[in-house]
Design a protein around this nucleic acid. Sequence first.
DNA 1: TAGATTGTTAATCGATTAACAATC
DNA 2: TAGATTGTTAATCGATTAACAATC
Lengths: 212, 212
Amino acid sequence: MSKLLKPAIPLPTIKRIPIYVSVLEKWKQEGKDTVSTTDFAEQLSLKPVQVRKDLACAGAEGKPRIGYNTEELLETLHRFVGWNNLSDAVLVGAGALGTAILGYKGFTRFGLNIRAAFDADEQKCNTTIHDKPVYAMDKLKQYVRQNGIMMGILTVSENGAQQAADALVDAGIQGIWNFSPVKIQVPETIFVQREDLAAGLAVLAVRIRERQ
Amino acid sequence: MSKLLKPAIPLPTIKRIPIYVSVLEKWKQEGKDTVSTTDFAEQLSLKPVQVRKDLACAGAEGKPRIGYNTEELLETLHRFVGWNNLSDAVLVGAGALGTAILGYKGFTRFGLNIRAAFDADEQKCNTTIHDKPVYAMDKLKQYVRQNGIMMGILTVSENGAQQAADALVDAGIQGIWNFSPVKIQVPETIFVQREDLAAGLAVLAVRIRERQ
DNA sequence: TAGATTGTTAATCGATTAACAATC
DNA sequence: TAGATTGTTAATCGATTAACAATC
């Protein structure tokens, strides 16, 4: 129903916005104070129309003949993807992948602030990993509520994934970034973004083979 | 031209295959020796037709009224995504993300065997990270040629990405799994799979906001 | 003014879904 | 045999691209 009022923004569009941001940041540093969709198209091997549609979706406005103001556009896109204000998140599953993500500083550039990790393994609890506290799973709900956290990052192995997802939902999280190689079941009010490394690897393998 | 003979397999299809594999492995363990596309559809919230099309693309064959033989299908899909034989890869960029990927044991399940890492930082060279050797960049070409390696994993920061990609191409790599947040320029004979964490995060942020 | 560029409507393309015949 | 399921052709849907009017 709300779909009739505001049609959901196409998924491919959302995914391209961060690429525009990255190019824009480069151009801003270089002192380019106006950019056109033709510029983007050349740089990224896209069609200018597509870029224009994408930017329009994000609420950007340009001037015919001139293009878009670099800083203004950057600001608009940053706001669109929520990178203007860091959003807090908790991470569940402090294994190899979880530890990596906790330590990856690049995320702050993307507006992500991982506040704490949670793990079922008692040995890991009440320690820190890359300066982030690790707590027991039974502390999750309270922590999420008290800190108003909306996003959960799921880096649990295949077996524990569903249980961990249930805990995140119960704690009141709104969206889950799921790195586990499993489709988790959640109420439809919760949004799940599956980050599927296996899928990427499969694409690579098939495409390389196709070229032989 | 080869596209006329063998139309490229749709990207979404390739990406779904690993999910089928994961479900199939569970079912195999449970002793289910026959599976139908309806089973998959229920488990994964997909339409049965779509599953059938996907499986057909991967070369699987079923029997009307009965379905697919679990083990046979698993074998077919494994072969399709190349997980039957481990494919060797090198990693370039032994920073935070690179170190994480080197240490992530889950990849061997996906047929990936990272043989060695390469880094421009001399301090890191000739050490090991998670038991994998780290070499200087000028050793890359020789290593790739001698070991017949086809796949390169790029975990270099924004600035170094293009240069590292050039080195991989020069070394004779066929496909690049690019984790850097940059679109790299390569000859069209090289396939690049961009693993875009920023895109995933953007989708999550926008979708959570849409629901407010 | 002339021409580059935006913004939008219409046409195309590719993937999903529906419909249905074939089959065990 | 009857009915569940596969495999395939046709219809639909959504995203990309083309065409073009508006504008600085």
